[in-house]
Design a binder for these strands. Structure first.
Ligand SMILES: [Mn+2]
Ligand SMILES: [Mn+2]
Ligand SMILES: [Zn+2]
Ligand SMILES: [Zn+2]
Lengths: 138, 138
DNA sequence: TTGACAAATAGGATTGAATCCTATTTAATC
DNA sequence: GATTAAATAGGATTCAATCCTATTTGTCAA
């Protein structure tokens, strides 16, 4: 938590009770929660913290590289007609999803321990960054 | 497209002009479109096709394993306090996201050709399936 | 070919998450 | 303690998804 204060300072972020609470709630969670989940959790302690603040705060932390926004599985859904095994590159600028094939990646085998822990039905390498168009227009 | 009719038959799906159009629009697209994008596209040909139909049709195809719903990057966002390099298992039943570490996966190197094509800033293996809880309760 | 019926559609209503807006409050600095 | 820019609360708005139901339509068997 000291590092939280340092990181805030380094990014010129004021330290508010709400920010402290959001950060604590997220770091003490193992479930990759949504803003809404954190908001519900914090309402117990701060009955009138607003969802907008939670959302904004999380995005602020993400922009400061203090936390991550992970590849989602929510809406809006994206659909894929390509039924072959393949992988995806996601452009964080234009939001395009580009297919690629890579046999080295296809042959990745995860540890047997992991295979026991989960029933794995899908396996895909997800790259992200900037597509050719978007990096040249910057 | 013959296989489209076969697949519909095999899954007891009636062949409607809307379904044909949605399937064609998706398979002729390279951009992993959203339901809304397909809807806008189809409105040119079918001015009063409804968004609900497009959405429902795509989900129907996905359930019949004729197309895929890909890992999204939309809402609701999920946040991650874990800043170490790590990977994710996503449970398609309870929607939980579970971290795992795997050095073999960390050391994956994608082809130089791909590195040229994109500016890659993120690399993560995304597994999906059923977590321990969800597979035992089935 | 027609008729019956279950399935599918259109389009309006509802939901839920994210974002926007703006008056008010507050953390940081001196 | 006063100043000031930044942050917050909470209501309004937007947008995608989903629900609802009256109407239409594809399928299949007579
Ligand atoms: Mn794809
Ligand atoms: Mn994680
Ligand atoms: Zn791009
Ligand atoms: Zn689960």
């Amino acid at each position: 938590m000291e590092s939280f204060y340092e990181q805030c300072k380094a990014n010129n972020l004021k330290i508010t009770p709400q920010r402290v609470a959001v950060f604590k709630a997220l770091t003490s969670s193992l479930s990759h929660p949504s803003a809404d989940q954190i908001h519900r959790e914090l309402k117990k302690e701060f009955p009138n913290i607003s969802l907008d603040t939670v959302n904004r705060t999380l995005l602020t932390f993400a922009k400061a590289d203090m936390i991550d926004v992970v590849e989602g599985h929510g809406d809006p859904r994206r659909f894929d007609p390509n039924q072959e095994a393949h992988h995806h590159f996601y452009c964080i600028s234009c939001r395009g999803i580009f297919d690629f094939h890579d046999s080295a990646v296809d042959n990745i085998s995860v540890s047997p321990e992991l295979e026991k822990r989960f029933t794995i039905t899908g396996k895909r390498l997800c790259l992200s960054g900037y597509c050719d168009n978007c990096r040249s227009s910057q």
